[in-house]
Each structure stands twice: as structure tokens, then as C-alpha cells.
Amino acid sequence: MADVPKRILKEIERLNRDPVPGIEVNTIEDNIRYFNVIMCGPSKSPYEGGRFKLELFLPEEYPMSPPKVRFLTKMYHPNIDKLGRICLDILKDKWSPALQIRTVLLSIQALLSAPNPDDPLANDVADQWKTDEKLAIQTATEWTQKYAIEVWAKNPEVKP
């Protein structure tokens, strides 16, 4: 394994010492730059009660380049596509090397509370969100129930 920058080691150390409320971060075997994340859906959102799986990877250029993150749990959200890819400015051109894994995950959690259908990644979902927000929120709630709540109840070990 290549030398791991001090910054990454310190970030991991801090995440372990002082975990982010509602977000679990675990390294995946034999790749210190690769993490499994479980994120709790924010309250007062259609994602409330759900536990969502994500994967996060710190590329070689990190922190000069943003981390790569995607949802593994199926999401009904205008800024998240079918493969779980996330449209969020700080993961793209608004990235700052002073941002961290912690702040990135908090921003993603905030995105769940405040969907932005005007900057969509999933066009069909965004259209639904704009034309009938109530129905869209209902679908998101159903998906949360199906893919982020029931899955865990049936078998806590299973990959959602």
C-alpha cells in the first residue's frame, strides 16, 4: 500500500473519535481510501427513518480533488440518479480542499432535506417533483420504506 497522507489518517482518526451524528463511516478491508457509509435520513423529510448505504473513495489527488461518493441504496431524489450518483456542487466545481469527508457527508444529508429539482441528475424524478410535489414525496417515502427500512428489518446483514 502506498504512503497514506497525514491528512487522510487524521480525518479517519477524528471520524472514529468524534463520529458524525446519524452517519456511520467504516473502512473497507485492504483499501484505506475506500469507505462504507450508512446515513440516516434526515427528520421531516421523506427519507426519515431510512438507513441509506453509500460508498466513498478518496482518489489519489484528494484533497485537491473531491472524494467520489455514490448511494448504493435505491433513491427517489431529483439530484440522485439510478446508479446512485449524486449531483452536488461541492463534489464538482465548488470543491474546496478545505472540505472533508465529514463535511461532504453532512452536505449530502442536507441535500436529502432540500432536493433541488432545478439542477437535476435524474430528469424524470425532477419533472415529477416539479409537476406534483406531493406525489413525488409520497414515492420517495415509499422507496425509503421499501429499500431503506424493510431491507434492514428482514436481514440486518443483507446488502440493501
Binding site: 473497507i28 483499501n31 481510501r33 460508498e55 473513495f57 482518489p59 489519489e60 467520489k68 455514490r70 446508479l83
Partner: peptide, 15 residues
């Protein structure tokens, strides 16, 4: 060299 995990490698190829 930093090893890119399978899923992110395939996402790159997809892009």
C-alpha cells in the same frame, strides 16, 4: 499507486 475500487473504476469507464 492508489487502487481504485471496482465500482468507481466502472463509473469512470461509464462516464
Amino acid at each position: 499507486m492508489v487502487e481504485v475500487p471496482r465500482n468507481f473504476r466502472l463509473l469512470e469507464e461509464l462516464e
